[in-house]
């Protein structure tokens, strides 16, 4: 029998903490079985900088700056199936806790007026992506096909979704695997 082509998978972290990526690694020795079936495109694991055509894209984190939006759109344009992983991608999570404050209030507090800061200034290098006025979950920007909630989702939840998808099934998480925290 011909060996089926491996599915190409890209992953990235936008406004996230890489905790979801740690949880992906946490599937432990099952990674070896997984690597028989998939290969990685752009990902912190490969250090490939841009996403090419892929079967599955996995996005951690919401969008908090202009670069996040570009990366997210690049993933959507290239990935047949796009998965939001973790609380931040799904509802903004911790970064979105800034949403009731104005960006200028936050920048002033962090870089200028915070207790103990001397001679601080607000960074303004053109290399730095501009902040959005609010942090948004990624489904508010592009269409997302599947969601894996959790902060982070457990390795078992991630494994379940990936193996369901690889088996051509709609992913389902039952009690104990679906979790918002």
């Amino acid at each position: 029998m011909p060996v089926p082509a491996k599915l190409r998978v890209a992953t990235t972290s936008l406004a996230g903490c890489f905790g979801c990526h740690m949880s992906i690694l946490d599937i432990d020795e099952r990674l070896l079985a997984l690597l028989e079936l998939i290969e990685f495109d752009r990902s912190p694991l490969t250090d490939i900088k841009h996403c090419g055509p892929c079967d599955i894209g996995i996005i951690e984190g919401g969008v908090c700056n202009a670069e996040n939006v570009h990366v997210l759109r690049e993933f959507r344009a290239n990935c047949k199936t796009l998965i939001a992983i973790g609380a931040c991608a799904i509802n903004g999570g911790l970064p979105a806790q800034r949403n009731h404050l104005s960006v200028s209030t936050i920048l002033n507090e962090v870089y200028q007026t915070q207790h103990g800061l001397v001679g601080g200034f607000i960074p303004n290098d053109p290399e730095l992506p501009l902040l959005l006025d609010k942090v948004h979950p990624i489904h508010e920007v592009v269409k997302i096909d599947y969601f894996i909630p959790g902060c982070p989702p457990s390795a078992d939840a991630i494994w379940k979704v990936l193996t369901d998808l690889l088996a051509g099934k709609t992913p389902e998480l039952g009690h104990g695997l679906i979790s918002y925290d």
């Binding site: 939001a84 489904h139 508010e140 909630p149």
Partner: peptide, 9 residues
């Protein structure tokens, strides 16, 4: 699995 709608924050 997701909040589906846009958040009001």
């Amino acid at each position: 699995m997701s909040p589906h709608f846009d958040h009001f924050f």
